[in-house]
Nucleic acid binder design. Structure first.
Lengths: 140, 140
DNA sequence: ATTAACTGATACTAAATTGGTATCAATTAA
DNA sequence: TTAATTGATACCAATTTAGTATCAGTTAAT
């Protein structure tokens, strides 16, 4: 069971780089080489994050990307939702009605509880927090 | 992000059926139709669970499967490990040494913490507990 | 002894997801 | 004018997930 796919992992690291740049535009190329992320792959992730209003871009020479949202308001939960879909358990959950299969629904109850735990844990982890941790680690 | 795949979901429900049968042998066919699980698919899962000493089987007519392990000692964590692989975060984790990429490792630290949370939550959920919940629900 | 109901083992397939590459048009700073 | 850059897509390969099919061997019941 993989918790984070490359998508999410790369996105987090790209956002960390952008947060560290603090208002300067960073090009996809710069992020890719700095964070060791495949360039074309990264570009798609960046586009996706623009669509979700996490970052903005400037086209043309000396263009690049910049954080739009406060890094303390960008949670790992959000990124998981964008790149891996909403944290969920089984299809059963989506049909709002209680499903016919009783044992499936008993299970579902337990798992929805865990889902909440996972989500709230990931919510505590923001890009802002990670950046501070990272800079603290680098000062040592 | 899907927490449980069909594999695990089916396995849990099959084990619940076996726990409910309390020492009688249940055939794959009976489990499949009762729990609405594709028959051939289920058979593979059952074989896998035999290999992991969760259940035993009896061949031939009137044969079937029976729990081997105490249902209170079968946790969802174990089933996830069997059918979806150990709960993990990124490849980074497996290389024991600290990886070169600092930001990846800061992230990793946070995520290993969450991993622990998830695992311990799923450990609380045993087949025995689910069965009791299920039977309580059915009495209502 | 035969047969029907079973498990054991394994091979195969299809669809979805994941990870990655390539291309070309449009924009902009120098 | 040109080089550096984003926008938009289309494509591809590998892996994982979900499901099917087949055949051999075992056993209970008749």
């Amino acid at each position: 069971m993989k918790v984070l796919t490359k998508n999410t992992d790369y996105a987090i690291r790209a956002l960390l780089a952008l947060a560290a740049a603090r208002g300067r535009y960073l090009s996809a190329k710069a992020i890719a080489s700095g964070q060791d992320i495949p360039y074309q792959f990264l570009r798609r992730l960046l586009q996706e994050m623009i669509r979700h209003n996490l970052i903005i871009s400037k086209e043309g020479a000396r263009g690049g990307f910049m954080l739009e949202k406060d890094p303390d308001l960008i949670t790992v939960t959000q990124l998981i939702e964008i790149f891996q879909g909403k944290v969920q358990v089984s299809e059963c959950m989506f049909r709002k009605q209680i499903c016919g299969n009783r044992s499936r629904c008993v299970l579902r109850h337990e798992i929805m509880r865990i889902e909440q735990v996972v989500q709230s844990e990931f919510e505590k982890v923001t890009i802002g927090k990670l950046l501070r941790d990272l800079e603290a680690a680098n000062r040592k």
